[in-house]
Simulated assay, not measured.
Amino acid sequence: MATDKTSVNSQLDAAYQRVWGAIVSHRLLPGTRLKEDDLCDTFGISRGNVRKLLQQLAHHHLVTLIPNSGAFVARPGREEAQEVFKTRRMMELEMVRELARKCTARDRQMLEQHLHREHAAHESGDKSLRIRLSGEFHLLIGTLAERPVLYQFLHEIISRASLIVALYQRSHSANGRSAGDRACCEHHDLIEAIAAHRVEQAVELMDAHLQELENQLDLEPPLERHVDLKKVFA
């Protein structure tokens, strides 16, 4: 029984990552309907497990479930995106201030190891992994800051912000640098300031970093189109 449960969880995790990857690569656009029958055929899982998958995606705000209509790729609007980033900024500035005050050598090592993984994902062209790791970098700062209550709220916000970035981030910033290259460089500068206990500099860098992320968003809604899920996940 335990083995069967592990196998199902593994299938659901794999399906989740494939849906996330399709959203990041813009093969699934905001508002795309995810039909249960198509997902059953595509991933080779039961209808019950497809519903579990959709619930998990909805919990992380990747999918919107509408009664009597179905499941659709989430379509956060301009006002929601701005509210998410405003809330994120308030929480993360507090987190980075706390960590910069007490950062240890071990904390720095953990941040640098994570940044190394971000660089590798960027260099390999794996946008899906790069966006996920970028969000997890910010969560790692929250973890190391040891503010558990604030961290719970941050986890929710980062999930929503990562989706917004995946859907709407331009591939290059205003100065022509790729979004991934700029994010890695800014994370490196953040680590240096945090590790040196330069508190106000760390706060300023985080504020500028989050503002740049928001500036990279193109919040004009994409045109809706019919999508063949079997071809998307082929």
Rank of each mutant, 00 (worst) to 15 (best):
150 L>T: 13
32 T>F: 01
156 E>A: 12
190 L>D: 02
210 L>E: 03
53 L>H: 08
20 W>I: 01
193 A>C: 13
66 I>T: 13
43 F>M: 02
123 E>L: 05
84 V>S: 05
228 D>V: 08
207 D>A: 07
211 Q>S: 04
35 K>Q: 12
234 A>F: 13
99 L>C: 04
52 K>C: 04
103 C>E: 07
152 Q>D: 15
91 M>G: 00
42 T>S: 06
199 V>C: 03
146 E>F: 06
75 R>Y: 07
69 S>V: 11
192 E>L: 12
86 K>E: 12
21 G>C: 00
156 E>V: 15
127 K>Y: 10
183 A>L: 11
196 A>M: 13
21 G>A: 07
198 R>E: 13
83 E>G: 06
218 D>H: 06
212 E>Q: 09
18 R>W: 01
25 S>Q: 12
55 Q>N: 14
93 L>G: 11
155 H>A: 15
113 Q>R: 14
201 Q>G: 02
130 R>K: 10
138 H>Q: 15
150 L>F: 03
221 P>C: 07
93 L>D: 04
156 E>P: 13
132 R>D: 14
1 M>R: 05
144 L>R: 11
19 V>L: 02
77 G>V: 04
104 T>V: 08
32 T>C: 00
90 M>H: 14
63 V>K: 02
136 E>F: 02
151 Y>D: 14
115 L>G: 06
70 G>I: 03
141 I>D: 02
224 E>F: 11
128 S>V: 01
123 E>I: 10
154 L>W: 10
196 A>I: 15
166 A>V: 12
63 V>T: 05
81 A>S: 13
229 L>N: 04
188 H>R: 15
81 A>E: 04
109 Q>W: 05
202 A>W: 00
123 E>H: 08
17 Q>P: 00
155 H>D: 15
54 L>R: 04
162 S>V: 11
53 L>N: 05
203 V>W: 00
139 L>H: 11
26 H>N: 09
26 H>G: 01
52 K>T: 15
147 R>Q: 14
195 A>R: 14
108 R>G: 12
51 R>G: 03
19 V>W: 02
34 L>M: 06
17 Q>C: 00
4 D>K: 09
74 A>Y: 01
200 E>T: 12
43 F>N: 03
91 M>S: 10
15 A>N: 07
201 Q>N: 09
79 E>W: 00
165 V>I: 15
67 P>L: 06
49 N>Y: 15
18 R>G: 00
103 C>T: 12
202 A>V: 08
131 I>F: 06
55 Q>P: 03
214 E>I: 00
106 R>F: 06
3 T>M: 03
25 S>F: 09
18 R>L: 04
75 R>I: 04
214 E>L: 06
142 G>L: 05
188 H>N: 13
99 L>A: 01
46 S>G: 12
217 L>K: 04
83 E>H: 07
144 L>N: 06
177 R>A: 08
63 V>I: 11
185 C>Y: 12
77 G>K: 04
140 L>N: 08
151 Y>W: 11
65 L>F: 05
